[in-house]
């Protein structure tokens, strides 16, 4: 496990501390790292600075309130905060409802297998590094797809990002959960 993987596991343990003991110190560290990135994402998605500030605060508050919903075997902390920010963006900037899929019928496992958690967090780290290693033009393409000023087909295919591993790992996790519920 390298430093970056360790950092990701640290964010995961911060989420657990927020969930279990309402740990404000852990939340402050999480806030200082992620809130400016949420704000940047919202500004690039078309919000002005004061709206982005307000929404980023709401996103981080939601992160606290919904800490019990975070599943480290299925998402990194960055992924999870991104989905909250994305939903806020649709709500506030695009003024639309966002239809969500049916819940799987159960929350995150109480004590997910640490090996599964670690594997998924490492996949995400690898994905993050792959984005950084892309030629700038390709990286910009992906960013623009997520900031909403480009709808481009098969960007991930073209840039050869390692999404396949994450897809199959998530697929396995879902199978395991479905099996456990039978």
């Amino acid at each position: 496990m390298n430093d970056n993987d360790a950092k990701r596991m640290l964010w995961v343990s911060h989420m657990v501390r927020i969930r279990d003991t309402q740990d404000q110190a852990a939340f402050k560290e999480l806030f200082e790292h992620f809130a400016p990135r949420v704000k940047g994402f919202l500004i690039k998605s078309g919000a002005d600075a004061s709206l982005a500030e307000e929404c980023a605060q709401e996103v981080m508050a939601t992160c606290w309130h919904k800490a019990h919903m975070f599943d480290p075997a299925r998402a990194s902390v960055a992924t999870w905060i991104f989905t909250i920010a994305r939903n806020r963006k649709i709500d506030v900037l695009r003024k639309q409802r966002r239809p969500e899929p049916e819940d799987l019928g159960w929350g995150p496992e109480e004590d997910p297998d640490q090996a599964d958690v670690m594997a998924l967090q490492q996949d995400c780290e690898q994905l993050g590094r792959a984005i950084e290693d892309l030629p700038p033009a390709q990286r910009e393409l992906i960013q623009r797809a997520y900031f909403g000023d480009l709808s481009h087909s098969e960007i991930a295919e073209q840039t050869g990002l390692p999404l396949g591993t994450i897809k199959s790992r998530l697929r396995l996790a879902l199978e395991r959960l479905r099996h456990a519920m039978k």
């Binding site: 990135r37 994402f41 998402a75 989905t83 994905l127 997520y146 999404l163």
Partner: peptide, 27 residues
């Protein structure tokens, strides 16, 4: 299958938001 695919694109979004340098704006 598509749930897993959709969640992997969430992961990509998370990395775009959190890992790409210069995307942060001071609070």
């Amino acid at each position: 299958t598509c749930r897993a695919r959709a969640e992997s694109f969430d992961a990509l979004g998370g990395e775009v938001m959190a890992q790409t340098p210069g995307n942060d704006v001071a609070m």
